[in-house]
């Protein structure tokens, strides 16, 4: 059964159309990756799910239509969003950043904080450090942690590996796999790093110029001629 269903999603920035009738489904307990180049509309797609853009079309999450809802209500329903790592609160410490994520899940603060610190022990060591002074990898961990503090059923992660060292990318992948396997968390990531996405996800959508161009399992897409030529350069 699909936890998230998007039908004919369209987003405009002024007169420019960013998403053209995007439709996709995310099954409960799955990891789904949206891959595509810069400017394809990946971040816009995630922003639209959380209600940060004006959009038309239908977005149904766990049986609830999100189309007319705004971000605070949507987050309350159980969607956690980890935007690109620049979107932290730079003059706040790690713990303060995490607690902002718990604004709508106050009863589970201690449990969620423990879970985040177990997942990323480095954050516990640096709990009072201002995030503007952290490395890119740590900032990504804070971003993920903040999204997890809202006790989500669905985690949206925007470009988790952007600008990170390969070693850190592996850590992030391990954490996401762990969340999916241990807690059954459904995860949607957007990625330009196609290898990373294909190794992590069970289902992959290729988004280009605001349209879904291809979809399939990683194994299917790995042999797709267009993907091989465009993204693997072979």
């Amino acid at each position: 059964m699909a936890l998230l269903e998007i039908t004919d999603l369209e987003v405009f920035y002024g007169k420019a159309r960013s998403l053209h009738g995007v439709s996709l489904e995310v099954g409960a307990g799955k990891i789904v990756a949206i891959i595509g180049p810069n400017g394809a509309g990946k971040s816009t797609l995630l922003d639209s799910i959380v209600g940060l853009t004006k959009r038309t079309g239908r977005i149904v999450f766990d049986g609830t239509d999100l189309s007319r809802m705004r971000a605070p209500q949507i987050v309350s329903l159980g969607i956690g969003y980890a935007p690109e790592r620049g979107n932290l609160f730079p003059f706040m410490g790690v713990k303060e950043n995490l607690l902002v994520g718990a604004y709508r899940a106050r009863k589970e603060i201690d449990k969620n904080l423990r879970m985040v610190f177990d997942l990323f022990p480095v954050l516990e060591e640096r709990r009072n450090q201002e995030t503007r002074t952290q490395s890119g990898g740590e900032r990504q961990m804070v971003s993920l942690g903040r999204a997890l503090m809202s006790s989500p059923k669905l985690l949206l992660v925007d470009e988790p590996t952007m600008g990170l060292a390969p070693r850190v990318c592996l850590d992030i992948a391990a954490a996401l796999r762990d969340l999916n396997a241990r807690l059954g968390l459904t995860i949607v990531i957007t990625e330009q790093n196609v290898n990373f996405a294909m190794n992590l996800a069970q289902e992959v959508y290729l988004l280009e110029t605001g349209r879904i161009r291809l979809k399939g399992t990683p194994d299917e897409l790995r042999h797709e001629k267009y993907i091989v030529e465009t993204y693997f350069g072979a």
């Binding site: 922003d47 959380v50 940060l52 705004r70 971000a71 605070p72 949507i74 987050v75 309350s76 969003y81 935007p83 979107n87 932290l88 609160f89 730079p90 003059f91 706040m92 303060e96 607690l99 902002v100 994520g101 604004y103 709508r104 903040r146 999204a147 809202s150």
Partner: peptide, 23 residues
């Protein structure tokens, strides 16, 4: 308080505050 912290998130990054569920 948490309310005070929430107010300062608007200064730092209003969009990130909204995406964290803050009204």
């Amino acid at each position: 308080t948490r309310l005070g912290t929430a107010l300062s998130t608007i200064r730092m990054d209003e969009d990130a505050a909204r995406s964290s569920g803050l009204n």
